[in-house]
Amino acid sequence: MKKKIRLIEIAHARSGDKGDSANIGLIAYSDSLYKIIEKYVTAEKVKTHFTGIALGEVHRYEMPNIRALNFLLHNALGGGGTVTLKYDAQGKTLGAALLRMEIEVEEGEL
């Protein structure tokens, strides 16, 4: 049986800026939940999720030691710094936007 879950149910996050890139750290609430985000929250999936926001590549880095994935969303902040016209100039709310993502997992995995 497959089950749809939202990332907000299994993880928390923090985001910020690095030039014109946004970084989002996604942290699972337990080691077993980390296995799930590691398996399902791929760079590709995150890039698709942020269509219209992340205009460049998305890189993913793994930190199982703190149950976290770090995503770099390139070309996502309208030029970054003081150049950007975006209200959320530093991508502070993009971590929350990632938590909107839905993934489909095997029920036994939870």
Partner: peptide, 12 residues
């Protein structure tokens, strides 16, 4: 942990 991941690039 949330602060550790704040504004980092390649963590290694």
């Amino acid at each position: 942990a949330e602060q550790l991941v704040y504004e980092i690039g390649n963590p290694v």
